[in-house]
Write a protein that binds this DNA or RNA. Structure first.
Length: 449
RNA sequence: GGUCCGGUGGCAGAGUGGUGAUGCAGCGGACUGCAAAUCCGCGAAUGUGGGUUCGAUUCCCGCCCGGACCUCCA
């Protein structure tokens, strides 16, 4: 079995992945806050960790992958107040949209997908532990984490507590002991969603959700915690602080993985900047599989600039892969060839893996059936190339009408009326249909990429 | 301002202390009525100034440029 190496944000180094329990690998990834459609940046994180989950499953006998749904959040409350739509309706609809987007992108469901609303008692329990051990305090209906009580605070994000306090640029609430203290629990007004707690009716802070849900499903210490690089601070720093203090002696996540940001025109795509494409926007313009490939064309830690050019290139790459598979219809996915597995095991080097896929495609096109089998297997590991080549090239178009046009063109060619034959071809081209003449008067067609 | 990450052909994007992958685009050729696809071939890159070294794109330092984070963010 090849050894897996991953870059741990905690050490900022590439490390050999050594699971706590090799018979059961456990991973937690921060899922979406369900108040609006997911954008392509969200998709990147989901696709990256989907590939990691697939890779782990290929390497280890059992993997538990937990990815939460955050359905308690003030952005949701704000949205409900603005639109008048009930909170439960917003979160249910947005969750369903998210699931549909993930399915389109070939992102497999996680093993457990806990929702914050279903785990408030666990959150309260974690908070009570923190208060009991002196790491948190109640003040004016709030419960706050005392960053001064945790000497390791700032380790993940690489900041010293002093810097964090000095850099605090928000108004510091008067009930905070330190400017860097963050909310574990806050009071709700009667019109806001709330749960009864030892501190009155209120709702949890954002970070505590993940601490509670990872604990519930993966235990105090687990193998991998993933998310976008922009979550390192404050979210993951705070999450780690809470969990490490609530469960003394634990390690929480042994390895932290963070994917780079998706950029648009050199700037981060984010909801707050408003420069985002929703996943649906992009799926209207290109096949979902091309979008997935696009997201895997850069190494996960690097930034990735989204563009229509890149999308078109991804589509053409898939054309070539599917052409190679079409050449060998009987090739069944076999073992994943070493160059592909080796690249993925080296810190999920998907661009290098894709280069290996191109080499397999070349060999398959040259006639090697084994290469086609390896190509198919490699694609499947990446969540790609699962379609029938015919569906990729010709799905969704009216075959009968095209066949009739091809027949008419064939007749014109036999009569050596090439002007007419070319006119028919041009008409089809205008409709996005490309013809390919084979030997012996056969003609096949495909949609233009 | 502080912390961190990065700068590789026209574009995208890997690797590497010793003649710089891969894809897209471009150019030439084969094939084709012409194309398309496929095949063969070609040109084309390590931001900048130092240092270490027999040798640096790779390691170290400065500079320039870009990006992320600094309590909403994947």
């Amino acid at each position: 079995m090849p050894e897996l190496f991953l870059t741990n944000s905690l050490s900022r180094r590439k490390e050999r992945f050594t699971p706590l329990d090799p018979s059961h690998v456990r991973m937690y990834v921060c899922g979406p806050t369900v108040y609006d459609l997911a954008h392509l940046g969200n998709a990147r994180a989901m696709v990256v960790f989907d590939v990691l989950a697939r890779l782990l499953r290929a390497l280890y006998p059992r993997v538990t992958y937990v990815r939460n749904i955050t359905d308690i959040d003030d952005k949701i409350n704000t949205r409900a107040a603005e639109s008048g739509e009930p909170i439960g309706a917003i979160t249910a609809r947005t969750t369903a949209d998210f699931h549909a987007d993930m399915a389109a992108l070939g992102v497999l469901p996680p093993d457990v997908e806990p929702r914050a609303t279903g785990h408030v008692p666990e959150m309260i329990e974690v908070i009570e532990r923190l208060i009991a051990s002196g790491h948190a305090y109640a003040a004016e209906g709030h419960v706050l984490f005392a960053v001064a009580s945790f000497s390791e605070y700032g380790r993940l994000s690489g900041r010293s507590p002093d810097e964090l306090l000095a850099g605090a640029r928000i108004d510091v609430a008067p009930y905070k002991r330190d400017a860097g203290d963050f909310v574990l629990w806050k009071p709700s007004t009667p019109d806001q969603p709330g749960w009864d707690s030892p501190w009155g009716r209120g709702r949890p802070g954002w970070h505590i959700e993940c601490s509670a849900m990872s604990w519930r499903y993966l235990g105090e210490t687990f193998d991998i915690h993933g998310g976008g690089r922009d979550l390192i601070f404050p979210h993951h720093e705070n999450e780690a602080a809470q969990s490490l203090c609530a469960f003394p002696g634990s390690h929480f996540a042994r390895m932290w993985l963070h994917n780079g940001m998706l950029l648009v025109n050199g700037e981060k795509m984010s909801k707050s900047l408003g420069n985002f494409f929703t996943i649906r926007d992009v799926l209207d313009r290109a096949p979902a599989e091309a979008v997935r490939l696009l997201l895997l064309r850069a190494q996960y830690r690097a930034e990735l600039d989204f563009s229509d050019v890149a999308l078109a290139e991804a589509r053409k790459e898939l054309d070539r892969f599917y052409r190679a598979l079409e050449r060998h219809p009987d090739a069944v996915a076999g073992a994943v060839p070493e160059p592909v597995m080796g690249a993925l095991c080296d810190d999920m080097n998907t661009p290098l893996a894709l280069a290996a896929l191109h080499a397999l495609a070349d060999a398959a096109l040259a006639g090697e059936a084994d290469a086609a089998a390896g190509l198919r297997a490699s694609g499947l590991l990446l969540g790609l190339l699962g379609a029938d080549p015919a569906a990729w090239f010709r799905g969704g178009a009216d075959g009968a009408e095209i066949d009739a046009a091809i027949a008419a063109r064939l007749a014109a060619r036999k009569a050596r009326d090439f002007a007419r034959a070319d006119a028919i071809r041009a008409e089809l081209a205008a409709k996005g249909i490309v013809l390919e003449d084979g030997p012996g008067g056969t003609t096949t067609w495909r949609r233009a990429s």
